[in-house]
């Protein structure tokens, strides 16, 4: 795996979780990964009635600021799953 340097200071996993929860307060966010690559599974009522594209847009929108630029803390989202709580 290649290195992805970033200027970001602090806990990136926590920053991702916080950002998603800001957009979707009821969300259960499972995030793991490192070195620029992250895997997310988000469960929220906010996805109810939405297709996969709109659901993922909500999540991507919430973490867009972490994905901006070449030295962004989040270089790639390896996998993003969205679910409505059952």
């Amino acid at each position: 795996m290649s290195d992805h340097p970033t200027d970001f200071q602090g806990d990136i996993l926590e920053a991702i979780r916080e950002s998603v929860k800001k957009a979707l307060p009821d969300a259960v966010v499972d995030v793991h990964g490192g070195n620029g690559h992250y895997t997310l599974a988000v469960t929220s009522q906010g996805f109810a009635g939405k297709g996969p594209v709109d659901s993922q847009r909500l999540v991507y929108g919430a973490i867009a600021h972490l994905m901006k630029g070449d030295r962004a803390p989040v270089h790639a989202v390896d996998s993003l799953k969205t679910k409505v709580p059952s």
């Binding site: 996969p52 594209v53 993922q56 847009r57 991507y60 867009a64 994905m67 790639a76 989202v77």
Partner: peptide, 21 residues
């Protein structure tokens, strides 16, 4: 597309999704 990642699949001019979808 208002979609932050590549690849992006289009069918009949409509955005279908990225890799996961």
């Amino acid at each position: 597309t208002d979609w932050p990642t590549i690849p992006q699949l289009y069918v009949d001019k409509k955005f279908v999704g990225g890799c996961d979808i």
